[in-house]
Amino acid sequence: MAGTGHTVKSYEEEMQSLNDNLVKMGSLTETQIAEAMAAVIKVDKDSVDKIVKNDGSINELRSIIDEQITTVLVKRAPMAVDLRITLSTLKISHDLERIGDLAKSIAKKVKPLPIDLPDELIGSLRRLGDLVQKQLKEVLDAYLNKSKDKSIEIWKKDEQVDDLTNLAMNEVANYLQSDKKNLEIATHLLFVTKNIERAGDHITNIAESLYYLIEGEYLEGARPKGKPIDS
């Protein structure tokens, strides 16, 4: 978006490498969320360990990005768009790392699940998971294209994530009501649902950071429902 490159080539290369690492991190996170959701839907316990292990690469990239950003700040004292790119990359990388953590937590809940969960319950989790995956893919695309309109669209769509979260919660409640012995499993499923929703919140944060990067201003108003991000 800045048009011509920096006069100092190594500065240009540093910013490029930062961008590349963030994109790499985004794509790893996308895979992790997709695999964690697939594991839940199919109650595929075999994939859990791999998902847990792969979270390490996301964390590693986060540390690399932190380090690179510190270097850019010290060496270049970035201004204007460079400053905004640097700050947004820092924030986005942290949100991606959190999404990665949530994918890992979701996967860990798969092991105790029974294979005969009700179709409606699985269906509601799938719809929620699909939407969040779509949001994540779109926000990463929007980052690549520096699309302001997309960032607003994604930000607004978090409301749908909330709606699907409520539906999934209801299904979990039904499942619990049908047999009180389901309590432990239902608790796991509530965590899964909550974690997907939180991933959605981090995606909203990314949309906000992206908007700031592009516009140099913060998105008007609070997030759609004004709910605080996970504590």
Partner: peptide, 12 residues
């Protein structure tokens, strides 16, 4: 844009 190019070191 010229201001941006100047302060971010994208001139010349």
């Amino acid at each position: 844009k010229m201001t941006q190019d100047y302060i971010t070191g994208r001139f010349g």
